[in-house]
Nucleic acid binder design. Sequence first.
RNA 1: GCGGGUGUGGCGGAAUUGGUAGACGCGCUGGUUUUAGGUACCAGUUUCUUAUGAAGUGGGGGUUCGAUUCCCUCCACCCGCACCA
Length: 854
Amino acid sequence: MSRYNAKEVEAKWQAIWADRKCFEVEPDSSRPKYYVLEMFPYPSGRIHIGHVRNYTMGDVVARYKKAQGFNVLHPMGWDAFGLPAENAARDKGVHPAEWTYANIAAMRDELKSMGLSLDWSKEIASCHPGYYGHQQKLFLDFLKEELVYRKESWVNWDPIDMTVLANEQVIDGKGWRSGATVEKRKLNQWMFRISDYSEDLLDNLDKMDRWPDRVRLMQQNWIGKSTGAHVSFDVIDEADSLEIYTTRPDTLFGASFMAVSADHPFTQKLAKNNADVAAFVAECHQMGTSEEAIEKADKKGVDTGFTAAHPFIEGKRLPIYVANFVLMDYGTGALFGCPAHDQRDWDFAKKYGLDILPVVSSDGNKVSDLGDAPYTGPGKIINSDFLNGLEVEAAKTEIIERLEKLGKGSAKVNYRLRDWGLSRQRYWGCPIPVIHCDACGTVPEKEENLPVVLPNDVTFDKPGNPLDHHPSWKHTPCPSCGKDAVRETDTMDTFVDSSWYFARFCSPRADIPVERDKVDYWLPVDQYIGGIEHAILHLLYARFFTRAMKITGWSHVEEPFAGLFTQGMVTHETYRSTSGEWLLPEEVALNDSGDLVEIEGGGPVTIGGIEKMSKSKKNVVDPGAIIDKFGADAARWYVLSDSPPDRDMEWTDAGATGAWRFKQRLHRYIIENTETAGVPGMQEPGEIPEAALTLRKTAHKTIMQVTENLENLHFNNAIARIYEFMKALNDYDVSDQSDGSRWVLREALETIVNLVGPMMPHLAEELWQLLGHQTILADSPWPQAIKALTIEDTVTMAVQVKGKLRGTIEVAFNEQSDRVEEIALAQKSVQNAIGENTIRKIIVVPNRIVNVVI
RNA sequence: GCGGGUGUGGCGGAAUUGGUAGACGCGCUGGUUUUAGGUACCAGUUUCUUAUGAAGUGGGGGUUCGAUUCCCUCCACCCGCACCA
């Protein structure tokens, strides 16, 4: 018997799909649309197993929805700008563009070998001027609407590499490459006004019911809405006042100090004449900009010597500190400290010997709830003049009213979300299309000059931004006055590229960013699939961009992604040699006695934990090698079969082998039984033998279950149901040659091929053809379950006595309850369990269970 | 610290959402075929047990005729956020 040759068959069908343009789509008002999108990959050069899992899931959804009659858009592109290309340029002397396009070519081949139902005619790469030029147009439109603006903000500056560093590039306060101590510097940065949309971004989360709760919650926390108050404190002997933000205005009477940020104007003014303050500010600036860095630092402050007047307590003076834990970016960059009811204030007060006065009492009577920690729970206000006796919430309202009357404060809603800084001092990104003119200031590039294309002749041998030291690129006449001016040499954050690519896919070759009729038809994305690591930034930025594109008239939708699914990671065991070196899975094997050893040398291998695949621990498998060995279908089948898609899955060779075996078994079964089955399009005969009818019922039940599982993305369960059906087919006696049996067998064989189709598309096409079809399975409709066939005439019901299982009974479907009781009680095992006891009641759940209560 | 999640055989996991716990796959144990194999097929595989049952879904408690599922509490692990005023 000829064995199924995955390599040949898969290549064959991939070619046929491509020739027939099976997956190339255009808007079609006669059919419902469905837009399936997986997060587009960064072209690192090779796909990894995580990609295989991600794209397989998306492909199953796309193929399934297509079979269901939807007009399915399923595109692919490349998130192609980014630092790795510049690193490659530096380290290997290859131009970023060359490196990137070579990687794209390699990865495209690998993806194609997976047999994905992608519309390759819509492929885009974000590093192509045909993409980023339109991004520049969007930028200019946003600029007109003031959705983007320029502002000075702090960055991590590497003084040797002369470059801005991302937080993760700062290691122990030093640049990752140069090792130089990182400085905080203020630079002019372009910012998207995302924080203006905080409330809207937050509100809409409630409506996004096809997003995981987890992700919605993460975004909610990130946006971080809080309600509180602004309070103004007069600084003694100064004309200034300090405006602070607090969420606990009710604890105002417990205030014992003020704290301001090192970057606060008050501090900066002071630093000019106060060496202690200046030194402290400098110290704060060495911490780096990440919140993590600030967290790890000790809580520290320096007394400015100034005091502020308490707005309600006559004569009370609060010392003003500069403190390293106060962030200029949040609230007003200043706060009052109430140590009795806030952990951070408590720690600070303990360190600097400040007063701790309780003003909230848990039951209203206790003098203090303080032990060795502040009290942050609910209760009644004490020690607070006119607030005494009020509950915390009532006290907040009351004191805000009083503050307003005094003109010393007001209610204020605050958000943690900050504006999105998009400037990057790098070469390999989308140039920001503005020009700096001495006379006219910052001037947008003329639209007819778009795209502003990156120069090709750049060098990476000098520190700093290659665009900046390019001899001619940045010199250009001012679009406004025509005098000599200088181009912006910053490029855009790559998150900008990924914030609208889903819209560009709708009209990828248009000479404007997007065509309205196309985006109106395709958007929003119906099912978006990707990793949880993008739960916050990418998904929030894309949501902001969608709003901005609506404001500038480019699209109609409020939200880009109607459905979101976050898949789990792929993990693998780790292996180490006796010398402690990590080993690749292909470097180890079982020896004759069943021990894991190194293939080279035969040394013993220590098996480590099951961890996320990473290059450093070498616990990676190469999808190319897997596909070569097992075939794309088996690889696809396996990544779907074992674990629920949102959970991490462990890659094991044994699991992949299992998938491969199923593929062989199904192939063999169809070949062996095609002759026995009826011909395609055979008329349904009047009579169907009993055994065939049973098989038919199983087939239709399987269709129903698999359909439901695919709708809910429960791929692992869908596969389990297909295995069960395969088993039923194996057990079925094919010897009866009556028309009825042959017809049922044909239906069953076609059913299993149909159901397997989205998961193992090449095998399914091959089998579809073997079954005598001239059509392409990818163009064929999804099978419909006949409901009557999914309902059994009889059901097995469990019989319990006092909640313990004592037997099962076979009764007609929907049998009368009293009849069920009768049958149940007639069981010997049931009678034995009841014994001498009297029956108190009998609970019958139709078609499920009988419980005799004694 | 706050928020969220997870915990079921040797392993991945299933359980119609309160109704026969362990589907399906992997592994393992027997057996049968086979010219070899990462072959195929059949049977078995939660634990204990006097073979009659008993226990059992991280531990303890509760609600219920009935709990993997709901509630309380504790434990372990994972993820997110975090000097957020």
